[in-house]
Design a protein around this nucleic acid. Structure first.
Lengths: 156, 156
DNA sequence: GTGACTGCAAAAGGTTTGCAGCGTA
DNA sequence: TACGCTGCAAACCTTTTGCAGTCAC
């Protein structure tokens, strides 16, 4: 995790950006919550919880910057806020997601199952795919919907 | 198209909703632009262009209603507005989309290529899929990006 | 030292809501 | 007639922007 942080820092510097406390704090939060899909507001709260000084506008600006550098992916699950997800190390494709309609939990599938289908898109539609997004809506077999009520998730 | 309209009307009535001019006009616009992915604002404009009286709030309320009935699908391509897409007749799955990064055109793939993959999600992750969303980002082989400038699309 | 970066507050969208009046069944 | 639906305007919420001051290099 320290070395991933370092890697991203280097990437910023290489691209002529300055490394500030706020940017580092933001990246650290993203790394610590790699499995989640944080909203800007949530990142802001988590940074402040650590007694680091930061403004919400800076969080937005940093996230946009990381997006431009393809370090994070901005996504939208339709609940009115944008969420940000670290791309995996190889910076290859976005993850696939499973969104449980009972508990609203979003889990990731890190395999890339679409290679074949992308070839088909290329062949049948003349469309060269450079990235994709695949979300499944459904229900976990073992979702009890008790310890993970919708309202809680929406507030989270 | 007339019979599709009729079908949706019946569905509304069956669900105890009233059939009003505004609702019918909205549905008609959606049917006439089935290939597009209209924003609420765009639907509003198109209805007004026909000299039908309607308020933007009503458009939003109607689209939400149609969403609840699974007649349209609300989606978000990350440009800050929600877009609405008629589900296909069988109301089965959402379409797949190809989003061109040069001209921003969104085209549909109506085949469902994910049956096998959904089985795999079920087996490997214990997640019962009821719907999915698949978007491809990339470039059309023959996209010239001339007659379809980004700015135009964003305003459209 | 200088240009990039930050925080604040205000502005800017898109979407939702309260309410009085209207129209459908 | 009664209740649902509509239009308007205000409210709301997330995100962006302008600007003066600060900080990294």
């Amino acid at each position: 995790m320290q070395q991933e942080l370092e890697k991203i820092n280097q990437q910023l510097i290489r691209s002529q950006y300055k490394m500030t406390h706020q940017r580092e704090a933001t990246i650290r939060i993203l790394l610590e919550n790699e499995e989640d899909h944080l909203s800007a507001e949530k990142v802001y709260m988590l940074v402040k919880e650590k007694n680091e000084n930061i403004g919400l506008a800076t969080v937005y600006r940093t996230l946009e910057l990381l997006c431009d550098l393809h370090i994070v992916e901005k996504m939208n699950f339709g609940d009115g806020v944008s969420r940000y997800d670290l791309r995996s190390d190889e910076h290859e494709h976005m993850h696939h997601h499973m969104i449980c309609q009972i508990c609203l939990e979003v889990k990731e599938i890190k395999d890339d199952w679409l290679k074949e289908i992308e070839l088909r898109v290329q062949k049948e539609y003349g469309f060269k795919v450079s990235d994709h997004r695949l979300d499944f809506m459904g229900v976990y077999n073992n979702c009890n919907g008790k310890d993970c009520k919708k309202e809680d998730k929406l507030l989270a």
